[in-house]
């Protein structure tokens, strides 16, 4: 699971959970694998994401690389910055661990990089 995916995931489908966002990450195995860097893509994605959520998630995994706490202005041409963000968004992957619903504490296992978001019949 990439952190860009984590940025949109929620547990709000659980009955009784209203926001279910952001999900906490507890990782036992994190891998960084190279993905082709496309500055234009990263620049276009940034306005769409929740910066704080990304920052906290990356920090909890130890991959924030001292990036700023707030999304800076004029990042479009800052290749260094975009490269770092590219790494956070697409290259850092949780291979093993779990996602935790902030409201109910329900755990969703992550195995072999795949988050299992399936709910039981009595949870929906």
């Amino acid at each position: 699971m990439k952190l860009l995916t984590h940025n949109v995931l929620t547990s709000k489908c659980i009955r009784g959970v209203t926001v279910g966002y952001p999900l906490l990450i507890k990782a036992t195995n994190v891998k960084v694998s190279e993905v082709e860097f496309k500055p234009d893509f990263v620049a276009k994605v940034l306005p769409k994401i929740e910066w704080d959520v990304l920052a906290n998630a990356a920090e909890s995994l130890g991959h924030w690389q001292n990036l700023p706490k707030e999304l800076p202005n004029n990042y479009e041409n800052d290749t260094d910055f975009l490269k770092k963000i590219h790494r956070v968004l697409l290259e850092v992957e949780v291979i093993q661990g779990e996602l935790i619903c902030p409201e109910s504490g329900r755990k969703f296992p992550i195995t072999n990089g795949i988050a299992n978001m399936l709910l039981n019949e009595d949870e929906v």
Binding site: S11, K12, Y21, I114, A115, L119
Partner: peptide, 13 residues
């Protein structure tokens, strides 16, 4: 990039 879910409750905001 893929995850496991049921289409009746998609865990996306």
């Amino acid at each position: 990039e893929a995850f496991l879910t049921d289409c009746l409750s998609i865990p996306i905001r």
